[in-house]
Simulated assay, not measured.
Amino acid sequence: MQLGNCWFDDAKGELINRASGDVWHLPRAEAQVLRLLLSQADRVVSKAELRQGDDEHGELSDSSVARAVFMIRSFLGPGSELLIETVKGQGYRLHLTPMTAPVPAKRRLPIRRLGPVPIWIPALLMLASLFAGGYFALRVGEMSPTAPLKVQSVVQADGQMVKLVLYAHSRSNNTLLLEKASELASVLGDCRHSRWREVFMSLSHDSRVLNLTLRGDYLGQAVVRNLKVSDGRSPRRFISPDWLREVDICD
């Protein structure tokens, strides 16, 4: 089955990029999601349908379905968001013929001929420009990013380096954030390989939500994942073996 520049071999469960020659053997979630979308092409497939399990596999989580769609799009390359359409509040729709984004028609405005420009207008424009420049500089100063609480480099088994960056609302009372960063650094260090090159961590004001942004590359394309982990227990754990398997920190 042709999908953009790629070919899907259903029997082998592989996506083949005919331009680059890259071959990707799809993991279970990605294979299940793609097969269901293909079987019901050009119609909306709900997330509930995409999550469903079978006799051999349990049901997928919503985050696993979203990640599977993201990874498939990443492999398919440019235009994949039109090939696999997100239908807000409903699910996803695969178009066998990719949609094209509408190009708005250009309107031709009537030509108006102006008389001489009064001498005070250039002076007013210059004054407005100076005021705007000063205001912009002030706003840039206000919006400068906060310096990280801590930056740590983790070396993995294959020699790849992952940078772990911690952000905090204050410079004190960050024991929980530092503790969770140490746990995640240990996990990343034990990975034989990982696509992630930068991991940004922070806690919500009430310390009930751990925010993670992961940046890296996969098959030559930049990938980004944003994760929020809630934990109302005491003490708060956030990171567990089940969670680590679900989000695939290690490849």
Rank of each mutant, 00 (worst) to 15 (best):
G58L: 01
R51M: 15
A29M: 01
L82A: 07
G13R: 00
T86L: 14
G79C: 07
L15N: 01
S74Q: 02
T86W: 03
D22V: 13
Q90C: 12
E59Y: 05
Q90K: 14
E81C: 12
A29T: 00
Q90F: 06
W7F: 13
V44E: 14
W24K: 05
E56Q: 13
L36V: 09
R35C: 03
S64Q: 05
R28C: 00
D62S: 14
F70I: 00
H25K: 07
R43Y: 05
K12M: 08
S61K: 10
N17E: 13
K88H: 08
D22R: 12
R18G: 06
P78Q: 06
G89Y: 12
A68F: 04
S46D: 08
L36Q: 14
W24A: 04
S39G: 15
E30L: 03
D62F: 10
K88R: 15
G21P: 01
Q90L: 03
H57K: 06
A68H: 05
S46A: 02
A19C: 03
A41P: 09
S46E: 09
R18A: 02
I16F: 05
V44W: 12
G58W: 07
A41D: 00
S20I: 11
D10H: 08
V65A: 05
L82E: 03
A41N: 08
R18M: 02
G13M: 06
G77V: 09
S80Q: 11
I16S: 06
